[in-house]
């Protein structure tokens, strides 16, 4: 962050400008979050009814639960796969979009539309198409390659299908940012390399990637958040956490404990722990990028 001279000094004015945002965030995000934290020390019946203070019992229950540990492991693995997968695929497509001379707009729109599709609708449609015995995609896969894709009973397959769908859904978001970032790299920086006849792949790795590293950092953080929080409808509608908890992501477990298994208190504790985990991850990511990202210009 550079020290640049800030033209305005009035703390009151700054406060006034920030107040609307802060009020909304405090009322609708912080207050419920604090309430969640409070609930994590209670046990409940149906949603919030029948609250009883139980101290740190909920946290103890989590710490001693093998299922929770597995869920944690699966979530971290899932996040890693989704972050890497999404960035790799979207970088590939974005770079091609950036390099293509004709029809860029058409290609771009065709590439980012899944992002505009709600996750829940996407999950419903894909479940229908990918159903192990009834789906159209699995039907043709089997007809053409002889492969059966029984991801209803195979944990690794279910995990793989979930990652693929999650990546597919998040491509558009990444492509939007990446294409813009690539377009913003000043020609002057790339001209000499181009004149030297540097190949396309090496241009990407040596020239572009360092220059768009702030965008990459941002996307790593946003994709991490997406993988931890946003993939919930996919699990809920496609795998329900199974088979054998292979896709039991923390966010799904939390939701199911709160709304299906009627343990809002426990779910609140899970939510608090999840908040902690993702905060730490985000902090590490930002720290790492502060040290390594190349801020051009």
């Amino acid at each position: 962050m550079s020290d640049f001279t800030k033209p305005y000094r009035s703390t009151t004015q700054a406060g006034l400008l920030l107040v609307p945002t802060l009020v909304v965030l405090v009322a609708f995000l912080y207050y419920p979050a604090v309430e969640t934290f409070r609930l994590s020390f209670f046990q409940t019946l149906l949603l919030g009814t029948g609250q009883q203070f139980v101290g740190i019992d909920n946290y103890v229950a989590l710490a001693t639960s093998a299922e929770y540990r597995q869920s944690l492991f699966v979530s971290v693995l899932f996040a890693a796969a989704v972050v890497v997968g999404t960035l790799a695929v979207s970088l590939f497509i974005s770079y091609l979009l950036f390099e293509v001379r004709a029809g860029a707009s058409g290609y771009l729109l065709a590439a980012i539309w899944p992002y505009a599709l709600p996750t829940a609708v996407a999950a419903t449609i894909l479940l229908f198409m990918l159903h192990p015995t009834l789906g159209i995609v699995t039907h043709y896969l089997e007809a053409l390659t002889g492969l059966t894709l029984d991801w209803f009973t195979s944990g690794p397959l279910a995990f793989g299908v979930l990652v693929a769908v999650a990546v597919w859904k998040q491509l558009g978001y990444n492509i939007i940012f990446l294409v813009a970032a690539l377009n913003n790299v000043p020609e002057t920086l790339t001209e000499s390399a181009r004149l030297d006849g540097v190949g396309r792949l090496r241009m990407l790795v040596r020239v572009y990637l360092p220059l768009i590293s702030p965008t990459l950092t941002f996307l790593v953080v946003m994709n991490t958040i997406y993988a931890f929080f946003g993939a919930f409808p996919l699990v809920d509608l496609m795998t329900s956490g199974g088979p054998n908890n292979a896709t039991n992501l923390l966010i799904f477990k939390l939701y199911r404990d709160a709304f299906s298994f009627n343990s809002l208190g426990l779910a609140s504790a899970e939510s608090t722990v999840l908040f902690g985990i993702v905060s730490i991850l985000m902090y590490v990511q930002l720290r790492f990028s502060d040290r390594h990202a190349h801020y051009g210009a």
């Binding site: 209803f152 199974g242 088979p243």
Partner: peptide, 10 residues
């Protein structure tokens, strides 16, 4: 239900 799935896994 999840128990049944683990019965029929490979």
């Amino acid at each position: 239900e999840e128990g049944y799935v683990s019965m029929i896994q490979n």
